[in-house]
């Protein structure tokens, strides 16, 4: 609560860290396309490549926050476009559950996102990162009670 009092001051020093788990076939390719088309976005994101977004154990997300991430993105292929038939459906289900869980744990919903990013959506990848950085700038660091 207190942190919201003065977001302007935070902005200058606060440098949020984002972990993005990207599936190899769609969202990692989307991030590649953002590069090939030279879309500029903030440097705050660190991509971890997995074969399928369905590989992302909810425990990884919790662990990432525990290790100091300010935001976590799990990105996969669009519904019905999964390279592994329906791995992303599992991601969607876990996403809903995780969002609720994190909220209960006191984390703002802006800090965790499940995104569908196709290999052709370089722009979307860049926008998702930009948006999360902007939102995190407003939120500031995770408050102590919020942490796991």
């Amino acid at each position: 609560m207190e942190k919201e009092a003065d977001p302007g001051e935070e902005q200058s020093t606060y440098d949020p860290k984002i972990i993005a788990f990207c599936c190899n076939w769609c969202s990692y390719a989307g991030a590649d396309l953002a590069g090939t088309t030279r879309l500029q976005y903030p440097t705050n994101v660190r991509i971890i490549r997995v074969m399928c977004s369905g590989r992302v154990d909810p425990a990884f997300v919790l662990k990432a926050f525990a290790l100091g991430a300010d935001g976590v993105i799990v990105a996969g292929c669009h519904p019905s476009d999964c390279h592994y038939i329906n791995g992303n459906e599992k991601t969607a289900m876990r996403g809903t559950f995780l969002t609720e869980f994190l909220e209960e744990a006191g984390l703002e919903p802006q800090r965790f996102k499940v995104e569908w990013i196709a290999g052709s959506e370089g722009r979307k990848f860049a926008d998702v990162v930009k948006r999360m950085v902007d939102e995190l700038q407003v939120l500031g660091p995770i408050s102590e009670e919020g942490e796991q």
């Binding site: 971890i48 399928c52 369905g54 992302v56 154990d57 990884f60 390279h83 592994y84 791995g87 599992k90």
Partner: peptide
Amino acid sequence: CGCCGATCPEGAITMTHYTDQQL
């Protein structure tokens, strides 16, 4: 794909080359 590895409640499944440890 690793869907099973992410789901097993016992942590009994290891995904080769994308192990929990590595990630």
